[in-house]
């Protein structure tokens, strides 16, 4: 589970001139245009972009839920052709299985891969505890609040032990206060269980708080516009002048588009 990687090792995720065009009956819709991106092991990369850009499409391309029209997506050196357990996804809508309890959701992945019951229970319990949901193991998702559901989503993705975590605006539906709390929690979890994370957001504060590197995207068709490294020590402080400076930079870059 522990990886010791320098920055110069082969990237764990690499997008090589990836484009995606949707075809529908009435029109063709170019969503992603020629995106190339390398993500290093255990790096926290945030894709930052305006509302209706192809961020979700990028995540789906890495996830293998969609295939690129041209170009290539590689995860851990292998070309992505289908979804697989080496990549875990946390959805904005949580996509919890409504008919499974919290425990059932978290152990869904390990169970699918045939992990024996005792082991997968232990593992699931570890992550349920990690996201702070002990005591809710037997609850169904319809009894949980938005923040709690998202915690289950995160625990479920982690419990499957993916190499790469893909998070598609996971806190987009939450209220501001819960959002701050979840950002803090995610940061803590990530420090404890280091993974490569690709995180999508349209909130610059969230981006700066979490990212090692922020990729700023343009409107559709999405291209990479700019890259910002964030070297602030963690945990970061929202009111730190350096923090605010980076936010200002991001907003400046985004304003250019308009």
């Amino acid at each position: 589970m522990e990886h010791h990687g320098g920055v110069n090792k082969t990237p764990i995720i690499s997008l090589d001139h990836v484009s995606k065009t949707y075809l529908s009956v009435h029109k063709t819709n170019e969503v992603v245009r020629d995106v190339s991106l390398d993500v290093q092991e255990n790096e926290f990369v945030v894709l930052f972009g305006p509302g209706q850009c192809g961020k979700t499409t990028l995540i789906n391309l890495i996830a293998g839920l969609q295939l690129p029209t041209s170009g290539e997506v590689k995860v851990d050196g292998k070309t992505v052709t289908a979804p697989g357990p080496d990549r875990g996804v946390v959805y904005q809508t949580t996509a919890l299985f409504p008919f499974c309890t919290v425990m059932g959701n978290v152990e869904f992945g390990p169970k699918s891969r045939g992990v024996p019951k005792k082991q997968r229970r232990e593992r699931a319990q570890y992550f349920i505890d990690l996201v702070g949901l002990q005591g809710f193991e037997k609850s169904f998702p319809n009894r949980l609040s938005g923040g709690m559901r998202q915690r289950v989503g995160i625990a479920r993705a982690y419990a499957n032990d993916p190499k790469v975590m893909l998070m598609d605006e996971p806190f987009g539906h939450l209220d501001a206060q819960t959002r701050y709390m979840m950002e803090e929690e995610l940061e803590k979890i990530w420090q404890k269980e280091k993974r490569t994370v690709v995180f999508v957001t349209n909130n610059s504060e969230e981006a700066v708080y979490l990212a090692d590197r922020i990729i700023i995207l343009t409107n559709t068709p999405t291209r990479i516009k700019h890259e910002i490294k964030v070297d602030l020590p963690r945990p970061r402080v929202y009111s730190d002048p350096a923090f605010l400076e980076i936010r200002r930079q991001i907003e400046e870059i985004c304003d250019d588009t308009l």
């Binding site: 979804p83 697989g84 357990p85 990549r87 875990g88 996804v89 869904f108 699918s112 891969r113």
Partner: peptide, 15 residues
């Protein structure tokens, strides 16, 4: 059936 759930199960490596 919610296609997102099916996609999600695929992501988790479900046959």
């Amino acid at each position: 059936v919610d296609p997102e759930l099916v996609g999600c199960a695929r992501m988790l490596g479900t046959s």
